[in-house]
């Protein structure tokens, strides 16, 4: 691990409705071909260019490392399961705290110009800070236990949800707000019945980013010191130059990231059932 990406979560537009089955099959075929080509190039470059294993381990060595982490009893301290569980639990708690706060503050900002003016500059200032730089401070405040992991995960998950929910709520079609006004609906009724569902595609785009950022934040916090977690697995492998072990752990994290993303998309499709067809 080095710098953690300071990607400013650019506002992502609501995802387009899904295409038909044929396209999906085509897509996974292309993805599979990509993986095969990548693995082949990797294997060839290690085999014939005699790259030392401490720079780039062979695919076989990485698969072996993966197997030794996965093909063990879930209770084994040598396997991935215990550290992965610890990382996922802290990431999930941080995600809920950060995304929850982001949604609440984003909503207050969308509803009130005063809150917007008050909060927006700080939100951007906070987002501009390199999180790696403030992570040690967070560890000092929250200790080496789960607290600092959850706090950094929350810190990273907060911003995309804040900005996306704010923008989405403000983007509510004025005709829909007129409708609620003509019915003399209360502010909260308008928020709950019209604005929140209107903003849902934006909010989910924010949650999609936030869930991966929470995982990232947890790992970063674990690098700074932890008893448990995938970050610890990586630092331990690095300390004995077990590059294959590092690769294996990174692959696990990559797969977890994809699964989390897919999970959010699945929930999104369930919740925003009406956007499958354009009205």
């Amino acid at each position: 691990m080095n710098a953690m990406p300071e990607i400013s979560p650019a506002l992502s537009a609501p995802p387009a409705p899904r295409r038909r089955k044929a396209k999906a099959v085509n897509g996974s075929l292309i993805a599979a071909i990509g993986v095969v080509v990548l693995l082949a190039a990797w294997d060839v470059s290690v085999r014939y260019l005699h790259t030392p294993s401490y720079i780039l381990p062979s695919p076989a060595a990485v698969v072996h490392a993966l197997a030794s982490g996965l093909l063990v009893s879930p209770a084994s301290p040598l396997g991935y399961y215990i550290p992965l569980w610890s990382t996922l639990r802290n990431a999930a708690l941080g995600f809920m705290a950060g995304a929850g706060l982001g949604l609440v503050l984003g909503s207050l900002m969308a509803e009130s110009r005063v809150v917007e003016k008050l909060v927006m500059p700080y939100a951007f200032a906070l987002q501009s800070l390199p999180k790696v730089a403030i992570a040690p401070l967070v560890v000092i405040w929250f200790g080496f236990g789960d607290g600092s992991k959850i706090a950094i995960a929350a810190l990273l998950a907060f911003f995309p949800v804040l900005i996306n929910s704010f923008t989405g709520l403000r983007a509510t079609e004025p005709e829909r707000i007129d409708l609620m006004r003509a019915l003399s609906a209360s502010r909260f009724e308008t928020y709950r019945i019209v604005k929140l569902p209107s903003a849902a595609p934006f909010i989910f785009a924010g949650l999609d980013m936030a869930v991966v950022y929470a995982l990232l934040g947890t790992i970063v916090a674990e690098f700074l010191g932890a008893q448990q977690g995938m970050g610890v697995v990586i630092t331990q492998a690095e300390s004995v130059t077990d590059v294959a072990g590092v690769f294996a752990a990174l692959i696990i994290l990559g797969v977890v990231g994809i699964v989390l993303h897919a999970l959010v998309r699945r929930i999104e499709r369930r919740v925003i059932h009406w956007s499958r067809r354009k009205i």
């Binding site: 005709e175 829909r176 409708l179 019945i193 019209v194 569902p197 925003i272 059932h273 009406w274 956007s275 009205i279």
Partner: peptide, 8 residues
């Protein structure tokens, strides 16, 4: 103008 129904 337009029906302005809530799609959800």
């Amino acid at each position: 103008q337009a029906a302005n129904l809530l799609p959800w």
